[in-house]
Design a protein around this nucleic acid. Structure first.
Lengths: 156, 156
DNA sequence: TATTGTTATACTCTATAACTATA
DNA sequence: TATAGTTATAGAGTATAACAATA
């Protein structure tokens, strides 16, 4: 960071590593690492014209077939209105379908189509590969440790 | 995630842990954990009416006094146009100042004011505390491991 | 001609209030 | 009246092109 702070003669001496601030914060390191993996995945998914949120939605639907839009919103940690254009896109591309519920005609059950299931299988491999590529600096044991630590954090 | 997929009678049985997909991806765990720490920090900084990016900017300026706006943009991984409103806000609040460079009158040297230095000292403590609070599930050794692994990732 | 900072603009993501149709 | 989905809208954050002043 701040790679060229000495390009003006008014710039003072950069701080010593001992004074590092941002670099010692988990939140900062987490953000930098997350952005790197996110950008990497975005690049890989772009070949299928999909965004990470759409991939996540497909994965959640597969594991919870028939769930309602409100459930999907909670699972993706987004607000219900954001589900609408997301699902519309998946339906346009025939990857998922909304099915009116029999007992409560206000809600839909959401399911993957055959094409959605097939594409998701591909996407899982892409995401897994993207993970490894973006964390090439780690070995398998370190990846395991990292996943364990991160899971402990976000599971409260 | 997908906490209530069984609220409709059309919902099938949720997947077994063995079939977990998203939960096994580093990118997913990274995103969930990062969002948690980010939201926590946003809450803590709001008492000072500041955003994380403004805190980061103050920290970068402190460690690289006199740097130019283009340098700050690189350090924050944002585009030069985004630096303008950010710095304007810091100047309005008298936390930082732009000083015209003597040799090159196109550019500014950016410095913290005394008030900026004083506030930053407080903010560092807030950020450090926020880190610990949001990662209460980890002990100190685990935090150290995590920081080391994350740093390896984002430093390529 | 190239560079620093700036303006204007646009696109995405996110969040909220209000509407509809069912219940 | 309450709920599921939707619409409309507004606010951040982010990215690019183009401009003014200076080099």
């Amino acid at each position: 960071m701040a790679r060229s702070a000495r390009t003006t003669d008014t710039a003072a001496t950069p701080a010593t590593p001992a004074e590092a601030v941002l670099e010692d914060l988990l939140g900062y390191a987490l953000r930098r690492a997350q952005l790197k993996l996110f950008q990497h995945l975005i690049g890989r998914l772009s070949a299928h014209d999909l965004r990470p949120a759409q991939f996540s939605a497909l994965a959640v639907i597969e594991q919870n077939p028939g769930l309602m839009q409100a459930d999907l919103a909670r699972a993706l940690a987004i607000e219900p209105p954001q589900v609408v254009p997301l699902l519309n896109k998946l339906e346009e591309r025939a990857l998922a379908v909304r099915v009116r519920c029999k007992p409560d005609k206000r809600s839909y059950g959401i399911f993957l189509s055959k094409a959605g299931e097939a594409l998701l299988k591909e996407l899982k491999q892409i995401a897994s590969d993207s993970d490894r590529e973006a964390t090439a600096a780690l070995d398998d044991e370190e990846r395991g440790q990292l996943l364990r630590l991160l899971t402990k954090i976000y599971q409260e």
